[in-house]
Design a protein around this nucleic acid. Structure first.
Lengths: 265, 265
DNA sequence: CGGTGTGAAAACCTTCACAGCG
DNA sequence: CGCTGTGAAGGTTTTCACACCG
């Protein structure tokens, strides 16, 4: 997902796999819940269930961090919470700026999960002068003219972009120029950034589209239960093609149904 | 990510890899932009750049859909838009319900990307009676008592959960019982669902935590280029730890609280 | 020539299954 | 005994590099 540099060419063993890093927050959340209920230890099986993964994966993941469990017993909850927090860098707190205070920005500003886990909303920034000074989630919105100043003064290295797509790249450029090196992008655009800057994106409509894909698949399946869709697909091969422009003879697949109909322009 | 069943044990060739499916929406967006600018054709190189991936990957991805390009030329933009839309199931439109109309729910309701790409917000649902009837993004909020009725009447199969974590599972259960088979979950909880139901989750704080991890890594790197974080980490393991304990001594909660302050390397 | 489509290699991730420790 | 930690196997994804075609 990160557009910037490739993470760790894995010089030697110390590199924790990306896939594992992406799951650490999940484990952390589950552990925090256990900790709040004063549960002292937990087995890989139980923790895995709480985090929604399987236990072998969880143990493998933890093995990259070190040997923090006790055989025959499980993991010490408090201790693991601390180790994972440290690994994720959450024992220090990260000032974060949120740029673009529309509904989404406001939702983010008020999101409890931020403040609780090592992140501090250092500033809310919006380009609309009418917003300036208005408090959102208890924090007064500042005008984007001051973006650079805010970032430098607070030593902000993480920025969240919740602006319309049209201005996302220029906001991004300003953030990066001011010293931000990690960006969480909610705008539906591909951001380009220099090497060394990490970008992660969250795209609502992409997630829905992926669901739609699977949903469609289910719908197509429901007539015949098991070893099925194949015959279907194979059969359709020869039938469909609307031809890119010239010839029809070439194409391979072209699953269900017709061609024309929908699709705007 | 999907908690439900495993997607297609790949009985035969018809399965498009998950990783590819996840990128199709990206390509589609880039293509739509080109289409709006009336660009007739595009090469894998150009399109890959616009979508933020590399061209070999893009060609591989497209090869799973069929041979839709023209050698020496590239891809026909309109044609590809259509093919990908069809593959993703966007040529039909999907009614979607959004449950939980706080800031986030409101942001989702107003998100243009939904309506434009085959999704139709069929209903906004909230448990707060004070919200009932209030229009958000032009759509009147309905009370959650009517959830089942709404879903059945509109034939909704995709639900979005934007409620607080505490009620997410029960909302999920009701959605599923009423016939929803795909869920996009914004609440920071692991949902459990029966087989056949897909869940995707979007978690704001997880994304930030992943960024923090890389950010920390960068910070640790900048003094000495190579293996130093190693010694550091190794040392910390031996020195810091509050000991995996042998005496449970009940739980003190405060996660970060009592743990040694080390770390800032 | 320029650019697609694709086998084959490499990298990465997950799952299995069990040795070994507390 | 119960459960962790981990080599090894199996699967998936990415990348390479080049044959082949318009």
């Amino acid at each position: 997902m990160a557009t910037g540099r490739t993470h760790r060419p894995a010089t030697r063993s110390r590199g924790i796999p990306e896939a594992t890093v992406a799951r650490l927050p999940l484990y952390l959340r589950a552990l925090t819940a256990l900790s709040e209920r004063s549960v002292p230890t937990v087995s890989s099986e139980e923790l895995a269930a709480a985090a929604g993964v399987n236990s072998a994966k969880l143990r493998k993941d933890f093995s990259y961090l070190g040997s923090y469990g006790t055989r025959g017993v499980g993991y010490d909850v408090e201790y693991l919470v601390y180790q994972i927090s440290r690994e994720l860098g959450l024992t220090q707190d990260w000032p974060v700026v949120i740029v673009g205070i529309g509904n989404l920005g406001a939702a983010l500003a008020g999101y409890g999960g931020f403040a609780s886990r090592g992140f501090r909303v250092a500033a809310l920034i919006d380009a609309d002068p009418a917003m300036t000074g208005k408090p959102v989630a208890g924090i007064p919105v500042q005008h984007s003219d001051d973006l650079e100043k805010i970032i430098e003064e607070d030593g902000v290295s993480i920025g969240v972009i919740a602006t319309p797509a049209g201005v996302a790249q220029q906001v991004c450029d300003r953030l990066v120029a001011a010293g931000v090196t990690s960006i969480l992008n909610f705008a539906p655009t591909v951001l380009s950034v220099p090497d060394g800057v990490d970008v992660r994106k969250v795209d609502l409509s992409i997630e829905l589209q992926i669901l739609a894909f699977h949903e469609q698949r289910k719908a197509g399946e429901e007539s015949n239960a098991e070893a099925d869709t194949d015959a279907d697909a194979e059969a359709a091969v020869a039938a469909v093609p609307p031809a890119p422009r010239g010839t029809t003879g070439a194409g391979r697949k072209g699953p269900d149904g017709d061609v024309p109909a929908v699709m705007p322009a």
